[in-house]
């Protein structure tokens, strides 16, 4: 091509994946730090505490996603509302495949823990971990594939 644009290759979707990785790490780090501390000092983590922390987790993540999407959209003007192209779809498909494996592995580990008399709060924690790790693997795989090309 004659008129080469600059080769800045960070797409809106890749930027969103970065935002979600950072958001998930912060929100999940806070969530597990508090839950594990409570879990160590009490026999069972009270259900209202779990519910409250889950709501806080979702709020932090939502705020991060909105703020991150705004910043990413401003730096990639006109790209945010574009539908996924074929490369985006391929990357999404590969990332989802890996993330589903991670989710299922942690879920099976959690289910196995049930047979070793795991507390119900630990089971809930395992399910949360499966969901969070699954999403982290999804976003990190997306970033890796976007960096690599596909």
């Amino acid at each position: 091509m004659h008129n080469r644009d600059n080769d800045k290759t960070t797409t809106f979707r890749e930027k969103m994946a970065w935002v979600m990785v950072v958001g998930l790490m912060i929100a999940a780090g806070l969530y597990f730090y508090i839950v594990l501390n409570i879990s160590a000092s009490m026999d069972q983590v009270p259900k209202p505490v779990f519910a409250g922390l889950t709501v806080i987790f979702i709020v932090i993540l939502t705020v991060f996603a909105i703020f991150g999407a705004s910043v990413a959209a401003l730096s990639n003007i006109g790209e945010a509302d574009l539908p996924m192209d074929e490369r985006d779809k391929l990357i999404s498909l590969r990332a989802t495949r890996l993330s589903s494996i991670a989710t299922v592995v942690i879920l099976i580990m959690t289910m196995t823990a049930y047979f070793f008399d795991a507390r119900s709060s630990d089971m809930l924690l395992g399910i949360m971990a499966a969901l969070i790790v699954g999403h982290l693997v999804d976003y990190i795989t997306q970033i890796y594939l976007y960096r690599r090309g596909a």
Partner: peptide, 18 residues
Amino acid sequence: GVTRQTVIAIEKGHYSPS
């Protein structure tokens, strides 16, 4: 009908288009 980054990936030989 693709993003500019996809064109860049095709040019660099990192992505084979459909």
